[in-house]
Design a protein around this nucleic acid. Structure first.
Length: 106
DNA sequence: CTAGTGACTGTTT
DNA sequence: AAAACAGCCACTA
């Protein structure tokens, strides 16, 4: 595993229970502000070593769709988030205004 | 080293 | 409002 993934996982582990962060947010904190895609790549490869369910797509900001294309994965993410208190809207979204993580020093 | 790919995102149709 | 485009950067073959 590359050093970069270590940094990404370290950031994800700091997201508190019951909150969510966007891929772009994690990317910026990990030192690769222009590469949110890489965070997604790292999440797919994380193998349960980090709370991956707390990382969501930016488009969750208004209606909040969790952007995992695989329906099974999306259902799993929702199940995990609801178990830690994140409420979903009637359109299967997450309000980043309510659950978005405010990183220290932001 | 080159080419293809994607759990992203902002912009443009 | 939804879909297509175009940058993006690390990883893999």
């Amino acid at each position: 595993m590359g050093e970069l993934y270590r940094r990404i996982y370290a950031v994800v582990r700091t997201i508190p229970r019951g909150r969510v962060a966007t891929y772009g947010q994690v990317a910026e904190l990990a030192g690769i502000p222009r590469a949110p895609r890489v965070v997604g790549y790292a999440m797919r490869a994380c193998g349960g070593r980090v709370p991956w369910q707390r990382v969501v797509g930016r488009r969750s900001r208004t209606l909040g769709q969790v952007t995992i294309k695989d329906p099974v994965g999306a259902a799993e993410q929702r199940r995990r988030l609801e178990r830690e208190g994140v409420r979903f809207t009637d359109t299967d979204g997450i309000s980043l205004a309510r659950y978005g993580w405010l990183p220290p020093g932001a």
